[in-house]
């Protein structure tokens, strides 16, 4: 099984520890992981901004970097959803299609492909989970509260394998945090207000740690938390699951 690690561009630059944790987590589970060094970005920042037509270069580079692997795994539901929905190459659509079908968000790779049933790690603390909307509703990593279907959550399933962890219930568990890519600056007022609602939910439930499947949502919420000097530590789910946090 040839597995490639796809590290979102901003994680590469600002959160190397998240990528390292992802790599270690996969290695702990016996997976041989490559990091194709030519990779850059999935193109989502342009596409969500309305400039899908500018993503041809990113798409080509993405396909070049990840062709030949059985699985492409990434610690981001949002970037994975973008690839699944929008990775195309007019000059080589077959290659694009192959990559699209082989890309997995980290949690779903663990639960659905590796079929992880136990993790030999522990974490002490009261933890709130923020499932990014693109992962949750887009990739269906978890059931959404709008739909009348049985509850499930792949990230929660994994967190519950961690010893000593205490997951806190939330009032509005799957409300969007307001990051939304360029939305976080073009609609700064609403974006921050949405983030603050999430944070007050965590505070009300005495969460000590905020975790999630997308560093972009967490970066936005961490920015608000740090500005307000609130006692909440922010960790990507990979950092908890790999046991090194």
């Amino acid at each position: 099984m040839r597995v490639a690690l796809f590290v979102p561009c901003y994680v590469d630059q600002f959160y190397p520890n998240v990528a390292i944790a992802t790599m270690q987590l996969l290695q702990n589970l016996g997976v041989d992981v490559d990091f194709p060094e030519q990779q850059t970005c999935c193109g989502q920042p342009m596409a969500n901004g309305g400039f899908e037509d500018y993503t041809a270069g990113c798409n080509k580079n993405f396909i070049r970097s990840f062709t030949g692997y059985d699985y492409v795994v990434s610690p981001s539901g949002s970037c994975v959803l973008h690839v699944k929905d929008h990775l195309h190459d007019a000059s080589n659509e077959a290659a694009a299609t192959t990559v699209r079908t082989r890309v997995y968000e980290l949690c779903e790779f663990l639960t659905d492909v590796l079929k992880v049933k136990q993790l030999d790690v522990s974490f002490r603390g009261r933890v709130a989970l923020h499932q990014g909307c693109h992962g949750q509703r887009g990739l269906q990593l978890g059931s959404s509260s709008e739909r009348m279907l049985p509850f499930f959550s792949k990230p929660m399933q994994l967190l519950q394998m961690v010893k000593d962890i205490e997951m806190v219930p939330l009032l509005r568990g799957d409300e969007c945090c307001g990051f939304g890519g360029t939305f976080c600056v073009t609609e700064e007022a609403v974006s921050a207000a949405m983030g603050n609602s999430k944070i007050s939910d965590y505070m009300q439930h005495n969460a000590q740690v905020l975790t999630g499947t997308d560093m972009s949502c967490l970066m936005h919420q961490e920015g608000l938390i740090r500005r307000q000097r609130l006692p909440i530590r922010v960790l990507h789910i990979a950092e908890i699951l790999c046991g090194n946090s």
Partner: peptide, 19 residues
């Protein structure tokens, strides 16, 4: 506008690819 109500992430010494 990011900085009006939010801190930027702490800047790491190395990117993941450098590491």
């Amino acid at each position: 506008p990011w900085g009006r109500q939010r801190e930027l992430p702490k800047v790491p010494d190395q990117s993941f690819r450098e590491w």
